[in-house]
Design a protein around this nucleic acid. Structure first.
Length: 481
RNA sequence: GGGUCGGUAGCUCAAUCGGUAGAGCAGUGGCCUUUUAAGCCAUUGGUUCCGGGUUCGAGUCCCGGCCGGCCUACCA
């Protein structure tokens, strides 16, 4: 054994342990504390603390002859252990020296403080509970190869601290979202992911086949239409946090499966949703991150506090194109103008789509501070109520933060006749599928309601200052090898 | 999908004009009973992503493929 093949070296160590009657994959180890709890057991002034029993993966190993320091990583973080030959005995110390970085061990002993002040367990006993047969990535630089970070996320989580913290924060954010919704008297429901009609949004679905019924299903692209059926059924405050699937491109901001929050509240409307959405994000940010301001990589600080800006879609467009009569111009002149503005627009698009390209390509990425964009053209969404004072727009907002659309919300259309008409009149590249079963439900009566959908991944992107949606999704979609 | 940049030891990275593939960490063998990326001595380890081509000679140049990053397109 020359040490060149690290897997073989570890396998040989494992074989030696087995031959001596030791099981390198123990059934269990009794933990009394996790790492942070244990560290907290030793008071500021105390030199010696109570005995604790912890367990974790060895992520640092400093052997100094007849004693050693090592660091164990568990769910809370790291704790140091100090192991002396004269305290655990010659035999145990001999096998202890053969441990590898990456192995899981349990350690029991009293807490003490080292010369440099670090709270440490002075081991009376240790036991290997799981042998790791492969080495960890390098301890100082961690793992930086993107491919490996995504394909072997567990390694990223073991060695990259900021990654581990980001996913803990994501979990905390989702927990705080639920806490907020519950505090507003919403109940959480689960609706089908396999659907025969993919409604509620304009997107290409993933298709699959159900053998038992010998029929095709789609993976859901939105939660909307089933949650509205819940309103019809009398559950008048419902929400769902769930995965949706869209058969579209991959990018820094898009993963084919992503997580949405959708909430529907009867006897509310898009104004009510505005308050709900702002309060939700403020409370989640405050509780999950302890702050309402977050600095972007470019230095700009996103300020979530107080009331948020409202801006009418038309005003933003007119401001961006510098032309008051934009909406009166024929499509051909709009197209010429977009060319001057330096954006590429497909001339085959409908008139309202040309305008929306202006919004998406020129305006959206400039909306860094939270902004509710209101009075959106009715062609852009068939599921909302028409604005009474302006029949060309709908009662909706699109919340933009960090230059991205985070959450749209509507005063939900509940007139089955107008709803059917809106589905049928859709034009343009992207349209919603007509769901007759949903229209049947509407005919039974859906109370007036506000509804809101939020892209959780995008919320997590700016709350955790992530560069890429893949950094917020544990196992992002990748090309199979 | 298009453009562009990249893939070298388990990990992080070098390798000048095309001229013997190296370092740190990890590993292996020693020394070391309060270390903090511990230290000291010695040392193993390579299908340079894969397949072709050019050349006396290819990690390096050319062609094709695989995988990925970034930009872009569709979208949230």
């Amino acid at each position: 054994m020359d040490g060149s093949d690290q897997v073989a070296v570890r396998q040989a160590k494992l074989d030696v342990l087995r031959e001596s009657g030791k099981d390198p994959f123990q059934a269990n180890w009794e933990q009394t504390h996790a790492s942070k709890q244990a560290v907290g057991m030793l008071g500021e002034e105390e030199e010696l603390g109570p005995e604790v029993s912890v367990a974790g993966r060895i992520v640092a190993f400093r052997l100094m002859g007849k004693a050693a320091f090592l660091k164990l990583l568990d769910r809370e973080g790291k704790i140091q252990a100090y192991v002396r030959r004269d305290e655990i005995g010659d035999d145990d110390y001999a096998t202890f020296k053969k441990l590898d970085l990456g192995d899981f061990i349990g350690v029991r002993g009293p807490l003490f403080r080292t010369k440099t002040g670090e709270v440490t367990i002075r081991a009376k006993e240790y036991r290997l509970v799981t042998k790791a047969l492969r080495p960890l990535p390098e301890k100082w630089h961690g793992l930086s190869d993107n491919d490996q970070i995504y394909r072997q996320r567990y390694l990223d989580l073991v060695v990259n601290d900021e990654s581990r913290q980001r996913f803990q924060t994501r979990s905390r954010i989702i927990r705080e979202i639920r806490e907020f919704m519950w505090s507003r008297d919403f109940i959480e429901v689960e609706t089908p992911m396999l659907q025969s009609v993919s409604g509620g949004a304009a997107a290409r679905p993933f298709r699959t086949h159900f053998n038992a019924l010998d029929c095709d299903f789609n993976m859901r692209i939105a939660l909307e239409l089933h949650l509205k059926r819940m309103l019809v059924g009398g559950f008048d405050r419902v929400f769902e946090v769930g995965r949706v699937f869209r058969n579209e491109g991959l990018s820094r901001r898009h993963n084919p499966e992503f997580t949405m929050l959708e909430a529907y509240q009867a006897y509310s409307d898009y104004r009510g949703m505005m308050e709900l959405t702002r309060s939700l994000i403020q409370q989640v940010s405050q509780r999950a991150l302890g702050a309402l301001q977050m600095e972007r990589p470019d230095g700009e600080v996103i300020d979530l506090s107080g009331e948020w800006r409202e801006a009418k879609y038309k005003d933003l467009i007119i401001d961006a194109v510098g032309q008051d009569d934009w909406f009166e111009l024929p499509k051909s002149e709009k197209l010429q103008k977009t060319k001057k503005l330096g954006i590429e627009v497909d001339p085959e698009l409908e008139d309202f789509e040309v305008t929306n390209d202006v919004f998406e390509k020129i305006i959206e990425h400039t909306l860094i501070q939270p902004t509710f964009v209101t009075h959106i053209p009715k062609e852009l969404c068939p599921l909302a109520k028409i604005t009474q004072s302006d029949p060309s727009t709908i009662d909706v907002f699109e919340l933009c933060i960090n230059g991205q659309e985070i959450a749209p919300a509507y005063s939900e259309q509940n007139d089955p006749g107008l709803q059917r008409e809106a589905f049928l009149k859709q034009v343009g590249e992207e349209t919603h599928e007509l769901d007759d079963d949903f229209l049947l439900a509407l005919e039974h009566g859906m109370p007036p309601a506000g509804g809101m959908g939020m892209g959780i991944d995008r919320l997590v992107i700016f709350l955790t200052k992530a560069a890429n949606i893949r950094d917020t999704i544990l196992f992002p979609t990748l090309r199979p090898l």
